[in-house]
Computed example of a mutant assay.
Amino acid sequence: MLKSKKNKLSNLFFGIFIVLLIIPQTRQPIQVFLQKGLAMFSPSVEAKADQKQLESYQWKLTDLNGVPYDFKSAEGKVVLINFWATWCPPCIAEMPSLVGLHNDYKGKIEFLFVSNEDKDVVEGFLKKRDFKIKVYQPISSVPEILSTSTIPRTLLISKAGKIVIDKTGASNWNSDTVRETIEVLLQE
């Protein structure tokens, strides 16, 4: 009898959870909450032998104010590129850690937050969360080694153009591992 009540209660909670996932207004907050659990982990640093080489810096972008950015200017610098969108729960979950890293390393490394979304949508997202980052939109093809069909995708690139971290999915970018890796890359 007690087991039957537990099963009924369990089924009721499961049913409510499924209904909440179906409703658009509650689905995204639940997904972001679940992704934040995954975003507690730091991304892995690629073994030196597995690091891919960025061969081309031929990529043109523009910031949300229409100011052009030539990726060629990032050559010889440590670069962090984050492909993201405002509607993407894993992107939303990891964004606070990226913003924290950006706040501490802006001016030391090049940050490229890249989104294909409408300017007004991105600006509204940033304003609502009080994120002070510059977001870019591509105006030419992304170099093939950087291109992605899945977001978020974040890459940390050395001054020599080696892709040191290549992470798809939510992660903790404001971790000791990432910070230590950046410090080493800045010394190279």
Rank of each mutant, 00 (worst) to 15 (best):
L2V: 07
L2Y: 10
K3H: 03
K3F: 14
N7W: 08
S10M: 07
N11Y: 08
L12W: 08
L12P: 09
F14D: 02
F14T: 09
I16F: 10
F17D: 07
F17V: 03
I18W: 09
V19P: 01
V19Q: 03
I22M: 12
T26I: 05
T26N: 03
R27I: 05
Q28T: 15
P29F: 10
Q35G: 02
Q35S: 15
L38R: 00
M40N: 10
F41Q: 10
S44N: 10
V45Y: 04
E46I: 05
D50F: 11
K52P: 02
K52T: 09
Q53I: 12
W59K: 06
W59S: 07
W59V: 02
K60P: 01
T62Y: 00
L64V: 05
L64W: 11
G66A: 14
P68V: 04
K72Y: 02
G76C: 09
K77R: 13
L80Q: 04
I81R: 02
F83Q: 11
W84M: 06
W84Q: 01
W84F: 15
A85Y: 13
T86S: 15
W87Q: 11
W87E: 12
P90T: 06
C91W: 06
C91Q: 08
E94A: 01
M95Y: 10
G100C: 00
N103C: 02
D104K: 14
K106F: 11
K106R: 12
G107L: 09
K108F: 05
F111I: 12
V114N: 06
S115C: 06
S115L: 08
D118F: 01
K119T: 15
D120H: 09
D120R: 05
V121P: 00
F125K: 05
K127T: 14
K127C: 03
R129G: 01
R129A: 05
R129D: 06
D130S: 11
D130M: 04
K132W: 02
I133Y: 08
I133E: 09
V135A: 12
Y136R: 10
S141M: 12
V142S: 09
E144D: 15
E144S: 15
I145M: 13
T150V: 13
I151C: 09
P152D: 08
R153S: 12
T154S: 15
I157H: 08
I157A: 08
S158L: 08
K159R: 15
A160E: 15
G161P: 15
G161I: 04
I163Y: 04
I163D: 04
D166G: 05
S171H: 06
S171P: 03
W173A: 00
N174H: 06
T177K: 07
T177H: 03
T181E: 05
V184S: 05
V184P: 00
L185Q: 11
